[in-house]
Design a protein around this nucleic acid. Sequence first.
RNA 1: GGGGCGGUAGCUCAAUUGGUUAGAGUACCGGACUGUCGAUCCGGUGGUUGCGGGUUCAAGUCCCGUCCGCCUCGCCA
Length: 592
Amino acid sequence: MLRTKTCGELNSAHVGQTVTLAGWVDKYRDHGGVVFIDLRDRYGITQVSFKLDTASEIQEIAQELRHEDVVQVTGEVVSRGEGNINPKLSTGEIELLAKTVVLLNKSRTPPFEPRGETLPNEELRLQHRYVDLRRPALQRNMILRHKLTKAVRDYFDNLDFLEIETPILGRSTPEGARDYLVPSRVHEGSFYALPQSPQLFKQILMVAGYDRYFQIARCFRDEDLRADRQPEFTQIDIEMAFVEYDDILDTVDGLVKAMVKSARGIDFPTPLPRYTHAEVMEKYGTDKPDLRFDLPIANISDLVGDSDFGVFKNTVEAGNFVRGLCIKGGADKYSRRILDNDLKGLVGEYGAKGLAYFKVTDGKLDSSIAKFFNDEQQQAIIARMQGENGDLLVFVADTWKVSCAALAALRNFVGKDQQLYDPKAISCLWVVDFPLFTWNAEENRWDAEHHPFCAVRPEDEGYFQTDPGKIRAQSYDLVCNGYEAASGSIRIHDPAIQQRVFDLLNITPDEAERRFGFLLNALRYGAPPHGGIALGLDRWVMLFAGCDNIRDVIAFPKTQRASDLMLGAPSEVDARQLRDLHIKLDLPEENA
RNA sequence: GGGGCGGUAGCUCAAUUGGUUAGAGUACCGGACUGUCGAUCCGGUGGUUGCGGGUUCAAGUCCCGUCCGCCUCGCCA
């Protein structure tokens, strides 16, 4: 070993010992007769002092040291003495008095310094990820990620789960997200697909009798990125046989408890609250509400249908909705200009054509449009919104879908803007009873809301003929701080039910056989009732780390255009490689 | 595919209405200094203003195109 201690562990108890440290030069302070080096490794920072009266070659090396040089220092741990203690460092009571120093590797002047308080732009950080990853903030995230996965493995191990790996090279199925494809050399013209999730494999593992499975699984989806979405990401994938709905939820409640314990050291109250899909859409406008704050949506459609305000009236007459939020004390927080520009613009992004608003003043509505509402209507609106003097009432009049999306976005904005919650808080809920199908108006057909293998609530089976939109799935999402943090379902194990689902989705038996034949086959050979769920590991690390960006919890993330700026991936390949794969490029003109 | 923000010294940023030689802090280089911990002091180097075109007497600034990064809508069963 090139070191006997790390830079984070020395304290007064070690005074008098001779130790060897190795690490990076975090900072140097050259006083001529004495040189101080803050030596950094992932465990911490220890000050090293080089004195003039020591050997001259030590002095020489010490004065040459610059940021990010890699050095090995042997010396004596000495007390800094009164007045020289640095309370900012855990090792601040001591320093290492250098006896020998070896410059293990000189660094070029780094593009930025890991200790810098202002972060350089992300492009530069991603190009030099090895420097970025030296920053304590990112190191904390990587350590947290390790601790969480360890807690997950321990939790499942204690419950007799088996961690089983499934293939990365799989088969493309047209459902769901766009696949990443890998050409086969041996099978000319054929392609593997990288898994969007191990969904089908884990169901097949249930058929195979591995009744408690989990995996920390890498998944790939070739879709556009977001702050919380990467093209490759990690799921905590779970499947259980001989279980019912509640068994999965209970198991995950325990997992969340174990993760919170590991990340925050606290006992998280479980069971996590359960809301129906219909409930959260009504009250929060989204299937992933952030419940760190309340700020519910209220529906006033029934109160304003016969008002003189044309926009509201016409909306209600068309069978649409007038819904809104009551922003407590918001009357003097949002000016007319902000409401008419910023907030209207915000809801506009979700398709809302306008934003109506009123202040509550002297128990009445106060606004340029208040005159269209008589006293009775005003009182009814204020009561429904639970408004008080000084509150701001904002409304979106639109279709159900648009009012949901616009108000959910507005709710999130206000929650953050008005600091209605502690950003470090963790607030989880289950959203259950999702519809099995959603009507796709453009394509004039039913789509699977989750995936076509979701089990049906037995009491809803009658709706297959009459009203498929009313069928509730035995599916569940776990939502945390406004993120979809897990999603799963009890699966169909009965081929007859499976066929009815395919029928409704307009998937013919032939087509089903061609696309999912391997799964359907497996289900025919003794499939136990089973179900499962997958948690987005990256998002959980984000939540616990308190960061709002998934790249900061992934060691080597990709940019929004899915490139790796450090590797320069993706890249062109040799003509020979393409020839082996029988691939000819057919690029658009401008790129040719 | 659509909308928005950004790109000026190694880094973080500034630069009035389009107007002199594009500045500051930090880093880097040289010098001084035996107790600093954002060390200090003195001096210095450092610029394809992302790239290409245009308007203009004059462009970091205005216009068009393009590349890259971020946020977002669509998309993500």
